[in-house]
Simulated assay, not measured.
Amino acid sequence: MASLNVGNLGEFLREQRRTAQLTLRQLADAAGVSNPYLSQIERGLRRPSAEILQQLAKALRISAETLYVQAGILDERDREEAGVRSAILADPSIDERQKQVLLQIYESFRKENRPAAGEGDRGAPRDTT
């Protein structure tokens, strides 16, 4: 079966699974997917839906946005935001309530700096490289 160009996602998932010290079967069970299906995702043979990615992210205790970027669901412009979100969610030194508050503050700043429709780009400069 030909690869669907999702090898990077599969490699990333495999690395996250190993880092979490989970077997393929354990992650599949935790995410509510079949063992063969997860194996095909890791080998780049299947393209999972956003819902499946969200289930996998929850089971791996990482942000869904991180997997969305890896899968090409989120635009390159969202990569930086996903990185910030991932860093906040992965920080073991703050509790879940503090993480949610930080994410809310971060999002409010992003909205505040986003240019209004029709106003041109008057917000903070955006890196387009």
Rank of each mutant, 00 (worst) to 15 (best):
A57T: 04
I62H: 08
Q40D: 12
A124G: 12
L53W: 02
Y37I: 01
T129L: 10
A64E: 11
P48Q: 00
L53M: 08
S3V: 09
A82S: 11
R43L: 12
T19G: 05
D121I: 06
L27G: 05
A71Y: 00
A20W: 03
E112T: 09
L103P: 08
L13E: 02
A117V: 14
E76T: 06
R47I: 02
G44E: 00
R126E: 15
N5W: 01
E81K: 13
S108Q: 13
P92Q: 10
L60T: 10
T66V: 01
S93E: 15
A87F: 04
E65G: 11
T128K: 13
G44V: 00
Q26I: 04
L53C: 07
S63L: 03
K58N: 14
A64P: 04
A117G: 11
A31T: 07
Q55Y: 09
F12R: 08
L9Q: 02
P125L: 02
E107R: 10
D127R: 07
L45D: 06
L74S: 07
Q26S: 10
L89W: 13
I52T: 14
I88H: 08
A90R: 08
L24F: 01
L9F: 03
E15D: 14
A71W: 00
R17F: 00
S49C: 05
L22R: 07
N113G: 11
A64F: 09
R126A: 12
Q26M: 03
L45A: 13
A20M: 03
A117W: 14
V69M: 09
Q98H: 15
K99Q: 09
F109D: 09
E11T: 11
A59G: 10
S49K: 03
G44M: 01
I41T: 01
A31Q: 08
G118I: 11
E76S: 07
T23M: 04
R25E: 15
R18W: 10
G123N: 01
R61G: 09
R126Q: 15
R85D: 02
L53F: 04
S34M: 10
Q40F: 07
Q100R: 15
D127N: 12
G83S: 06
A28L: 02
R47T: 09
L67W: 02
D95N: 15
Q98W: 11
E51G: 11
E80T: 13
Q100P: 08
R114E: 11
L60I: 09
T128R: 15
A64I: 00
P48S: 05
I88A: 03
Q104P: 04
P48K: 02
E96F: 15
G123L: 08
T23P: 01
E51P: 00
T19L: 13
A31E: 06
L27C: 02
G72V: 06
R79V: 08
Q98S: 14
Y106D: 02
L103N: 04
L89D: 05
A50G: 09
E112H: 07
R46T: 07
V84I: 13
E11R: 05
T66S: 08
